[in-house]
């Protein structure tokens, strides 16, 4: 039981200050202050270099509302998330179900599927650009052997986005898989033994014991994935440059282009804050779901 009488608080206060100061200073300077500064910048016509800044009030926000590129980028990002999140979750769940349990083979396979997560986005995109390349890639020979012209995956309006999803799956499945594995490990063995004595089939065990047992983790993974995939940047920037015809232009990429290619820092920050609001909404959703889960 903690006790919070003033005496103890006073005694600990000085120690707490010393222990907290390094983090809090860095936190305020490099996280809280920039956040407020972002709001400040968004009220300006602010250029990256040259020091041109002019207070323009809500003009950037008005611009944003009528900016077709912004809505397109938002739409693309949502389309990407809508493809990547369910497929990532299902793939991670299937892998975790298959690899949950003891044995060397399973342990090695778990490592294999996790290993691709440690590559940097540049390596991942390099690998997949090679794999998907129509003239030098790994898939092209398959098409040729069937007498077909290889598809230019990254250059095609229909295939570019799914290609980014595939690369993202390959890169990112490790973490949700590990989360599912951890959750599966928490289900007591006795439940499975009882189910077996109750003549439960493999399917009904999955349906009535395993899935209900990990439903909180499913929610957690879904929210983490939504938040994570909304931030997609590297894959699109490096594999398709947002093309073809801006069909893979994502929000973060649009922020980067606006700020660091077109130097419109004020407007870029406005888009960034819009992204922040969207993602904060999802984080709230996570908190709300988490609290709801606790009540049960």
């Amino acid at each position: 039981m903690t006790n919070r009488t003033p005496q103890r608080m006073r005694r600990d206060g000085r120690a707490a200050l010393i222990f907290l100061a390094p983090f809090l200073i860095i936190y305020c300077v490099f996280l809280i202050f920039p956040l407020f500064k972002a709001v400040f910048i968004s009220f300006h016509d602010w250029e990256l270099a040259g020091g041109y800044r002019e207070w323009i009030g809500f003009f950037n926000y008005e611009d944003l509302w009528y900016d077709d590129y912004f809505w397109k980028a938002l739409g693309n990002t949502m389309r990407f998330a809508a493809m990547a999140v369910p497929s990532m979750t299902i793939l991670a769940l299937l892998l975790a179900l298959g690899l949950h349990g003891h044995g060397r083979v399973r342990a090695v396979l778990r490592s294999v599927f996790f290993s691709s997560s440690v590559f940097s986005v540049t390596v991942v995109t390099l690998v997949w650009q090679m794999v998907l390349s129509p003239d030098r890639g790994l898939i092209a020979p398959i098409f040729r052997s069937m007498g077909m012209e290889p598809i230019n995956f990254l250059g095609s309006v229909e295939w570019a986005m799914p290609s980014l999803v595939i690369a993202t799956l390959w890169w990112g499945v490790g973490l949700p898989m590990a989360l599912f594995l951890a959750a599966l490990g928490q289900i007591p063995d006795e439940l499975y033994e009882a189910a077996e004595l109750d003549h439960a089939s493999r399917w009904s065990t999955l349906r009535y014991i395993t899935l209900p047992g990990i439903r909180h983790t499913v929610l957690l993974v879904l929210v983490l994935q939504i938040v994570g995939q909304f931030q997609i940047f590297g894959q699109a920037q490096l594999m398709t440059k947002g093309g073809p015809a801006n069909t893979t232009l994502t929000l973060v990429q649009y922020i980067y282009n606006t700020g660091f290619r077109d130097w419109q820092v004020g407007y870029a920050t406005t888009i960034a804050l819009a992204l922040f609001v969207v993602m904060a909404g999802f984080s709230m959703l996570q908190l709300w779901l988490g609290r709801k889960g606790d009540d049960q």
Binding site: P34, I41, L275, M279
Partner: peptide, 19 residues
Amino acid sequence: VVAGLMVPEQAIFIPLHTM
């Protein structure tokens, strides 16, 4: 501090850059 978990890097990298 925990609320800081909600701030994505993309929201503050431009102000950080100007700093």
